[in-house]
Amino acid sequence: MRITRVWGAALLMLALAVSPAAADSSPSASPSESGDAPTEAGTSFRTAAEFEQGMTATASASTGDYLYWSFPADAGGRPTVRATVKLPEAAGSASTWQVDVYDGLRRRQACQYGAQTRTADAGAASVELSCTLRTVRAWSEQWSDDPLPGTYYVRLTTTRLATGDLGLPVGVEVRAESKDIGGAAAVDGSLAQPLVPGIAVTSEQDDEDSSAEAVLSSLEPDDGWASGWWSDRWVWTALGAVLAALAGIGGYSLTRGSGRPTRVPPPGA
């Protein structure tokens, strides 16, 4: 009887343990439409237009332009950048479009999957590109180029274009969203400061001065940069400890049999 109660409690705990696992698989749906998304794109790393994840940045440009945006990405997320290019009607031949993502150190980041490069036929109305990065880690060794928390640059351009199609008007939409990977990607260690270009210069300035000064990158995630100490590993480990304790009690009670030895008559008999 007691054993069943113990195992029942253990099963209940197990059911509870599913919740962190279930939470992992749901994407972090935090599309904050607040704030204004840029309607212009930059033309270099230096002039990249900044936008928050979940916003849709738009721009009107010309074929052949190199368009730059930047957005902040924090540890534990796996950002996906999607771009839609509305192609000019007057285009006479096929063009190849490409979206590249660079980290705060201007290192090109690999796309796990997604159509990073696409060739649009002469008559195509639009072309859609996407790039899913690796999970952003809180820390990595200096020799690796793993994605780290900080600014990410998006560059959109044509990599192959007929001369006759240079300079035609195009409309562009860019969007970035992160899937929350959770504790599975929680690594030890963290950067003292996120990989934001120019952060050493901006942190030296007084708060009053910096408002007027131009900076390389000023945005941070909606809820600030994560401090890096919380992950669902705490829940898993604590739960494991509780379960181990319960299992210990269960094992202990097994060796005691079910209460009173059979040869001893019950009291009052």
Partner: peptide, 24 residues
Amino acid sequence: ASFGLGRGWWLLGVLVLVGFLAGV
């Protein structure tokens, strides 16, 4: 791993098993 903490069903399985054996 973050602070050397564990995660996942294998971790729970091992902890339960070791706890049970220790209890016995």
